[in-house]
């Protein structure tokens, strides 16, 4: 099954993230002529700072998604990028997500000698489990494992299973959280998925 940007936008719309162009520049470092609050830097060593390219957060999140999504999922990169960038419109979420992804990448570099995104998929999975993320409670301001569970793993799992395409993989095209209309509950089987990726904005 192929995830699309449209899936990501549908999930974002369900969360109230609508309108406006989405851009990775939200993670760009602050510049002399910016106010700083549009940038991604959350501290001296935070993602989006001078030492971290703006794509690092996206790359880490995509790499994590490839570990936590089912192997049948295709189009993960495009889906995650659209979701993460849209999600980062929420100021309170952006900083915490950037911090968590950066910390995960830092751990990978310390323990494995490579960026998280550059690790083989099996090693990414193993690293997350060694960090206890699989058993951790998702707590936004908790320990590293708890924050990774909330801001990385659960953020990605929510995006996947609340999307129509992700839901279809387990038999529900209108999963909880997705405003998929008041008709699907009446059908005996899933309807045919729409195959066109509009690439449009988040009108859900």
């Amino acid at each position: 099954m192929r995830l699309t940007r449209r899936d990501a936008l549908a999930v974002l719309a369900g969360l109230g993230v609508t309108g406006g162009a989405v851009s990775l520049t939200q993670f760009d470092p602050p510049t002399a002529d910016s106010t700083g609050n549009e940038g991604g830097s959350t501290g001296e060593d935070g993602a989006g700072g001078d030492d971290t390219p703006p794509t690092a957060v996206r790359d880490t999140m995509v790499a994590a998604a490839e570990a936590v999504y089912p192997s049948a999922a295709e189009g993960v990169s495009e889906f995650v990028e659209a979701y993460v960038v849209g999600r980062a419109r929420d100021d309170s979420r952006r900083a915490a997500m950037v911090d968590a992804a950066t910390e995960l990448d830092d751990v990978a570099r310390d323990w494995e000698g490579a960026a998280f995104a550059d690790l083989p998929a099996a090693d990414r999975d193993r690293l997350l489990r060694e960090l206890g993320v699989d058993a951790a409670d998702p707590i936004p301001d908790g320990t590293l494992s708890e924050r990774l569970r909330f801001h990385v793993v659960n953020e990605l799992l929510y995006a996947f299973y609340a999307s129509p395409t992700g839901g279809r993989l387990v038999g529900i095209e209108n999963p909880i959280g997705h405003p998929g209309g008041a008709e699907s509950y009446r059908r005996a089987t899933m309807d045919e998925p729409e195959t066109t990726d509009s690439g449009g904005e988040t009108d859900g």
């Binding site: 936590v68 699989d134 058993a135 799992l157 929510y158 299973y161 999963p175 909880i176």
Partner: peptide, 12 residues
């Protein structure tokens, strides 16, 4: 499924 996934102790 969404809520189950967010409480699960595994992924993939």
């Amino acid at each position: 499924p969404v809520i189950d996934a967010l409480h699960a102790d595994t992924w993939g």
